[in-house]
Nucleic acid binder design. Structure first.
Lengths: 221, 221
DNA sequence: CCTACCGATCGGTAGG
DNA sequence: CCTACCGATCGGTAGG
């Protein structure tokens, strides 16, 4: 894992040979269930329906598969417009159109959108497993799941205050109070619900999400 | 992992031979950094300063070490009085003496107490790693980290409402809004701060915790 | 508590 | 894309 993780070309996965794509799909599934190290190249090959050695025609090393998956993941996060990547103009527009509730709901939708794609859900899970063992993945995760969102919400609440959409207050504290909920949803539905079926997770998470926004706004005003 | 995890005798670890204790300490450290499967018996032995085969004089299998650690963990959780194990009488007494803030701060202290013991901190981390791979650990974790605390806080808020310490409202929603923060702290400081020194984690987490209780109470009243 | 060993499995390569 | 192989490492055992 010498190279840095950067947003690569999304096409990287789709355009290549069918086998390469199937290797990646099998790897995502296995890595997310057993962890990167515990999942073997033989198992990946078996799922694809080829011999282990044939994988090495598509990837130099096992690690190269992991890197490809991470690059795809980051590219995809950027594409679907993950909450914290929202620019100031979009924030302003959303606030103008539908107020604080609009922005909060929109951000929730973005998360559900990401969780709603099985492939992305699996990669999130994989990253969570590797988080404790891999420094690079840990810092990536911390940036994506803690630092960036907190900064985003602090900025958003500050804008709402300036526009007098909400009363003045500690924007940083507000960001933490509001965003904590997302971490809770992440743990409860993404990590702890491997055994529950996919659609239930989406429905439940989105129900709690709506209730959260409602509760939060009632208290703040 | 055929047996169920139950609160075993805490002495189980301390009373036995010194070597057995050192094996467990080494295992906790290695399992929490590399994960159970990735940490080898040879590594454990090397840390202890004996040969791998000698471990088998103290434990029948690798899995038996893991089971011993989990039993110790559960017993220790019960001993320090983890928040959700608080009985109704204690809740009432705390509320009488120092109001909602007293109960909330007390619960925060309990968490910091658990996180403050390096051994417990490491086992929490270990459990988090294994969570995604082991159904038994996953359900244990969900019970301890989601279900029980949510039920505890829902009950606590209901009591506060009855005693008119806080205005009436949706106790379940309140529990979720209040408790989400703990999950955020757990992720930020326990899982994502392996690289940061121990004392800073405690200070930072407790600072955020105090701010959280203050913010939450201001909004609720 | 040790040495010496076991079969199983790992990631990866040679050569076609 | 395959067969056949490599050294390294795994958890665990025999026997003292």
């Amino acid at each position: 894992m010498s190279e840095e993780i950067n947003a690569g070309n999304i096409e990287e996965i789709a355009v290549e040979s069918d086998t390469r794509e199937r290797i990646i799909d099998a790897a995502i599934d296995l890595f997310s269930r057993k962890g990167y190290e515990a999942a073997s190249m033989r198992e990946v090959a078996e799922v694809v329906g080829i011999r282990k050695s044939s994988i090495y025609s598509h990837f130099k090393k096992k690690e190269e598969i992991l890197e490809t998956i991470l690059k795809y993941f980051i590219a995809e996060l950027g594409k679907t417009g993950y909450q914290s990547s929202m620019d100031d103009e979009t924030i302003h527009k959303l606030l103008m159109e539908s107020g604080p509730e609009g922005l909060m709901s929109k951000a929730g939708d973005k998360i559900n959108e990401t969780l709603g794609v099985p492939r992305m859900q699996k990669i999130w899970r994989m990253i969570s497993i590797e988080m404790c063992r891999n420094v690079m993945i840990r810092s990536f995760f911390k940036r994506q799941m803690i630092d960036q969102p907190l900064r985003f919400w602090e900025k958003a609440f500050r804008i709402m205050m300036v526009r007098q959409l909400i009363p003045a207050g500690d924007a940083a504290a507000m960001a933490r109070e509001f965003y904590s909920f997302t971490i809770y949803i992440y743990l409860k539905y993404l990590l702890l619900s491997c055994d529950i079926d996919f659609e239930s997770i989406k429905t439940e998470a989105s129900k709690e999400s709506i209730s959260h926004v409602k509760y939060f706004l009632e208290r703040i005003k």
